[in-house]
Computed example of a mutant assay.
Amino acid sequence: MFGYAMIALSMLFVTVFTFIPILASLGLSFFHWDVISPPTWAGLENYRRFFTDAPVLQSFGVTIVMAIAIVALQLTIGLFLAVLVNQRTSTFGRTFFRTAFYLPLLASTAAVAIFMGYLFDAKFGAINYYLGLLGMSGVPWLTSPFGAQVTIVLIVVWQQVGFTFVLFVSALMAVPTDVLEASSIDGAGPLRTLFRIKIPLISPTILFAAVIAFINAMQLFDQPFIMTKGGPGTATTTATISMYQTGFQNLQFGYSSAIAIILLLLILAITGIQFLASRKLVFYQ
């Protein structure tokens, strides 16, 4: 009873703000509802509409492409920095860099997006201003489809990489020193030790970081919505932006709920694939 009492507040929070909204969205996805008039039964019509709605399908494609890029860069850069810091710095240095790289994650995502929007503005942004001082032409960071996607990916990675960095530093510090000494005696160089010893030993941490990063990336909303409103065109319109536009702009909350449920199922499916692949790629001690 004491244990249940200790987790009661957390379970109440999760139930009220997670489980109940999911169930409500699931139920609402079978109705037509514009908030003004009472809901009317729609059956599976909202789900059938999804598979014929080209703009929404495109937004899912944009989301998947950007999520793959974000996760790949986040894991690669985080691991590179962690290996570098773990090998080249003292305990104080590791603490300093962990704090420095983690700080952007503590900032408000909306505030970062607003600041970066001004920074990368094609006409008045500081980056293009300094490029002009160097005699270079301005870059359409947020005004071209490819440029907007790349810019948003880089900003998300910059803000989120501290999380994976901290995980990887902690995992590398936990690698048994006797294993590393044995590999050194056997003549393994730094690269061979990294790819044959360290990465396999921290593969559970890599899996955890990949799963969390992909779940977050698939729900990308703040940066593209604040910086580009999903543009130019629909280049950065993600699945969550489509949900927002469908529900809160077009007042089609039943269809918006169906989009949310499909996104949830897609995230669950991709997460399941990650865990299936981990059976051959992840090594537990």
Rank of each mutant, 00 (worst) to 15 (best):
T228V: 10
I226C: 04
Q274E: 15
Q223S: 06
Q245A: 09
M218T: 00
D186P: 08
M243Y: 14
F163S: 04
L180R: 12
M243L: 15
T237V: 06
F221S: 00
A269S: 12
L265A: 15
M173T: 13
F221C: 04
I262V: 15
D222S: 14
A174H: 14
L265R: 09
N250C: 05
A174D: 15
M227D: 02
I273P: 02
A213I: 02
T237E: 14
I199T: 01
G162C: 08
A210I: 11
I262Y: 06
G233V: 05
L154V: 11
L201W: 12
P204Y: 07
S184Y: 13
T205L: 07
A188C: 13
G230R: 04
I202T: 03
T238G: 05
V211W: 07
D178V: 08
P190K: 13
L266I: 12
A171L: 07
L265P: 02
I241W: 01
I261H: 03
V157C: 00
G231N: 08
L194H: 06
G147Y: 01
S170Q: 13
P204L: 06
V166G: 02
T228H: 09
V211R: 07
I241E: 03
G147Q: 04
L194Q: 09
G247H: 08
G189Q: 12
V150N: 01
L268G: 07
F253N: 03
A239V: 05
T193N: 15
I199D: 01
T234I: 10
I226Q: 04
S203H: 06
G272E: 08
P204G: 04
L220D: 02
V169L: 15
S256I: 07
S242L: 08
D178R: 07
W158F: 07
P176F: 10
I267D: 02
Q245H: 11
F208M: 12
P190M: 14
P232I: 02
P176I: 12
K229N: 14
W158L: 05
T246G: 09
F214M: 14
A188P: 03
D222W: 07
G233T: 07
V211D: 08
D222N: 14
A210V: 09
I152M: 13
I226E: 03
L207W: 07
L220P: 00
L167S: 02
T238L: 10
L276Y: 13
T205E: 13
F225K: 10
G231Q: 10
G147T: 00
S257Q: 09
K229Y: 10
N216E: 12
I241L: 11
L263K: 00
L154K: 09
L167D: 03
P190N: 12
D222I: 12
P145E: 09
Q274F: 15
T238Q: 09
M218Y: 03
I267L: 09
I206G: 01
